[in-house]
Design a protein around this nucleic acid. Structure first.
Lengths: 207, 207
DNA sequence: TAGATTGTTAATCGATTAACAATC
DNA sequence: TAGATTGTTAATCGATTAACAATC
């Protein structure tokens, strides 16, 4: 029986991964939980605890091998899967994500774009043609799309998600500010920009 | 002495706010924690607990007045401040945020755009001219900018933040995937897209 | 060896859930 | 009145922090 990993731990792993890549570029071979924590404002105890969830990664008295730890965290996060994304809704935000350069180093690639606006369908974004939403089922199968990125208006989001799931998508990354219903076996991550901005407003309003 | 409010609670308030606006558009005057919870997949106990942090909002046996609760949550979040944003880095993501339509209903407005790319400076995005980064200090004061939005590459982010803070900015909303150092009295919220996407990858990789 | 640093257990802290009296 | 629903206290659960033995 697999122990459940806390979401808080999972959300810190990408930060470790990112920092290890930077540290690697600085030609450091070994890093301590202390140094890694200093670079992320996370306590070394927290980092060691997080890593201990998945096994033993370091050497007592020495620290962690940068490359090895980066690889192992990447594998835990499933980044070796080289996930393929389809962006549904090629407005400003969808277009920006189609051009986002920070996906590639994590192994994600955008392989399909969809919209239902005749003005947008047929145009090219970052070298990829925008397809009509009606061809979603066919193209998702053809291009082995794994993840659907929802950048349509909230009112259309659930319909799009239903279609994606019918087409066999394996995960949903949602930017529409609305609660989506998905089958329990389809992971869903919500990226609600208004939450972060409102939280900032809250903190700025405290004396 | 003011009790500290948990970040988890603060992060749920925007969801309540958003849902209350929708419910209001449906002409509902009263809502129970049960119904609100049903619409957000949050337990009614959690909602009542969150609200209780800030006082008494409802009527026993009846529920919450939709408009009143929406107003009071808006005020707790500080949305009545009508914050003014400047976006620094008008690439794809910065440009998308300059056009983002979901800010206005929350009282946020974008009043300045900056970039250091000569190709971009002088162009117009959503009716607003892109200014040279060198004029940041002057324009931020002139336009009473409250919040700086960081959409520059990670390598430039800390420099931009230092300039913004020197110019008198009151809060930072950061999209650059890097840990920023800011004075403790300047609230900072990080929006790291790779965290959410990596977490999705993790969940998709579990049996 | 002495100093550094991990991995792990125990202690603490904080958040969520459950229960229920108050009351509309 | 009976049914519904809040606000609040108590119980539980889970996450973080502290401490330290193991060991390089």
């Amino acid at each position: 029986m697999k122990k459940t990993i806390s979401q808080a731990t999972i959300d810190r792993l990408p930060l470790y991964f990112r920092t290890l890549r930077l540290v690697e570029a600085e030609n450091m071979d070994i890093i301590s939980s202390d140094e890694l924590g200093r670079r992320l404002d996370i306590t070394p105890e927290q980092i060691r605890k997080d890593l201990a969830t998945f096994g033993q990664f370091g050497r007592k008295g020495i620290g962690y091998d940068v490359r090895e730890l980066r690889d192992r965290i990447g594998n835990i996060l499933g980044l070796h899967n080289k996930w393929r994304l389809a962006i549904v809704g090629v407005g400003h935000l969808g277009g920006a994500l189609a051009n986002y350069v920070n996906f590639a180093p994590l192994g994600f690639s955008v392989v399909a774009l969809f919209d239902n606006d005749k003005e947008i369908v047929g145009s090219e974004v970052n070298g990829l043609e925008v397809n009509d939403a009606s061809s979603m089922e066919k193209i998702i199968a053809e291009r082995s799309v794994d993840i659907g990125v929802i950048t349509v208006p909230a009112s259309e989001a659930q319909g799009v998600v239903d279609s994606l799931i019918a087409a066999g998508i394996k995960g949903i990354w949602n930017f529409a500010p609305i609660k989506l219903n998905v089958p329990i076996d389809i992971p869903l991550v919500n990226e609600d920009l208004s939450v972060g901005l409102s939280a900032l407003s809250y903190h700025m309003s405290q004396d």
